[in-house]
Design a protein around this nucleic acid. Structure first.
Lengths: 203, 203, 203, 203
DNA sequence: TATGAATGAGCTTTCATTCAT
DNA sequence: GATGAATGAAAGCTCATTCAT
């Protein structure tokens, strides 16, 4: 069959990807070498180079696959009728986001390391950030249109601010021993974001 | 004389530090080698090892010296009588913080790179974060005590949130071509932080 | 049909040869790889191996084809009646030889490189040298027979000497910026060869 | 002693050079690796790189040292009073040149290979050629001044021609089984160069 | 205190080559 | 006849680090 060759190639590539993920998890990004990946995949020294340019290439592929699950969360429909409803939707989204990150904890740590080390990975992460903020921007514009949110603020700037907060707490919670309970973090993030610190809550 | 020897040692150390800063600025953190630093300082291959364990050691010393100027901003007295006054004080502090970062732009980029690459530097950066958040925590507690800020929120958690926002926009602005004007960023950060997105400002 | 298969084989071989020449011209001999040739010919990785053992094999085939044009010059009939006539014939032959080399300049450079790098190519070039010197030897013997040339000298040794001179100036002129005008080179070569440096021409 | 360190460095460099020469003689230029040189010199893997950039660097140093002995031959005083005396001087010089080459046979073969393979070595060989031709040029000008040689010919062009002849026969004789006896080669070279092929010797 | 000669670990990378299809 | 997936050999090279002076 003509396809069996292609089939075999795809299988080899997947075996390499699986192996790469294991090696990254075991050794971290900086200590991973192409050699370790080939050893784990039980492929020849040159084989990894047939499919991937370097270890960044491996990581970016794994990162993209993983982050797809995150972007699904970002694209949850956001059409609140009231402030309270908005609060619920936003708070729920944060919860899903942080929970997924905790679930993928070890992998997220590898990504964090790789983002710091490799310009290429960092650029790819910035792309992912841009996807998130684009999605958040739309949500903010919806809320402004329906007079739920302050229309004098720039949606895209606020979107970045909001994503940054999410990202930073995400990096915090994936590390051992979070200083606070996740629910508490979510409550604080959402409250400040939506009501501000100096607004009097009793009113 | 014992003193002249001590004197010489201090001078050598300073010459190495000056050289290290220049090399870091020229080559970035990852591409800097102890050899380059020794060359720039015109000291022997073994000399750097007398004073510094490795290149992280060099960077941490430089980072601490630089961040001292930032902590001065964090420790500006914060005793607002009204919300408006609080807004002014906070907004001014952000402005000083971002302006200083922009002034030290190139060095901050090196720090960012080093934080990503080296666990040791990252840990030291976390210490610096803790200093900032401790200071912010105190300010929040003051505002809560005087009924200016929502007392139901955890001061330390809010402090982290607030510092994270500052930090992320700081990394944003030190890179070329910020998407927005600095004043705009400051206004948005401070507004969301203090009044929230979903509070209606006109009311 | 059996014939169409043969036909196809010949066409593939020719496509590979054409591609090899282009790749050699573009990358030189050492930087040429079988892979590059296959890519240029748009054939599969294994195809080149069906027709050629290695890149030397490609080059030797191309070199033989090219040098055929040179050997035509070597076999121009040489039957001078006088010294002057001999001078004219020899000088004309050199001119044709150098002109052809200049015309094939880029290819000759590749040959030169290949001769230096590969023992196999060098051996093949020695064969070509032998063809030339055999032809020159005959010419010298003719001149000696007709008392035009010094009969005490060994025709084959002189033939080698004469070919070496031609070859070396040939390598010189195919490189950019020859120090002298071609006509001048020809005049000097032929004069020294035929009359010597220390014979007084005016007498 | 302050010098003992320098002394040690010089000794190491010399040990490496000696080792390199042996390895080049044993394996030829292309098959020589820095690793083989380090092994032979019993130095660490990195030591060769302290003193030499790459294997070309090794070879060029060895080539320069060797060729110094050749340039001594080129600079033998040349002040003939008669044609015969000139013949004797020239013929003697060729003899010394070829004899030295034969003595250094194996090394010359390595140089030949290296010249063909490496642009850098080739360029260095061209420098050596230029030294020789400069020296020959002076000799020719002397002969022209004293009316021993044809003044209508360009000294530098003739010098190149003469050196090329010497060089080519040199490469010939360093290879096994020379077709002719060295004395014969010298006689022919010198005769053609000085008297030409078509001058009648009896006159 | 300062030096700098020497070390060696070990990863990356390329490519000719094979062989099942 | 043509293909292309897979292999693996092996050299280059860098740099932190040591230690005798």
């Amino acid at each position: 069959m003509a396809n069996s060759r292609q089939q075999q190639a795809i299988e080899t590539k997947n075996r390499l990807l699986k192996a790469a993920e294991l090696v990254f998890l075991e050794h971290g990004f900086q200590n991973t070498t192409i050699r370790l990946i080939n050893n784990k995949a039980e492929t020849g020294h040159g084989t990894a180079y047939v499919y991937f340019k370097n270890k960044e290439d491996f990581l970016i592929k794994i990162m993209e696959d993983t982050m797809e699950q995150f972007t699904k969360i970002a694209s949850i429909p956001f059409h609140p009728a009231t402030s309270n409803e908005a609060y619920e939707l936003v708070s729920n989204q944060v919860k899903l986001f942080l929970s997924l990150a905790i679930k993928k904890k070890e992998l997220m740590k590898v990504f964090k390391e790789a983002i710091g080390v490799s310009k290429e990975v960092e650029a790819r992460w910035q792309d992912i950030r841009d996807q998130f903020t684009a999605s958040i921007t739309k949500d903010i514009m919806y809320a402004q249109e329906y007079k739920l949110a302050d229309s004098s603020l720039s949606p895209s700037l606020v979107a970045r601010l909001w994503f940054y907060t999410n990202e930073m707490f995400m990096w915090e919670v994936i590390h051992e021993s979070p200083s606070n309970d996740i629910e508490d973090i979510i409550k604080h993030m959402t409250t400040i974001y939506m009501k501000g610190l100096y607004s009097n809550p009793q009113q």
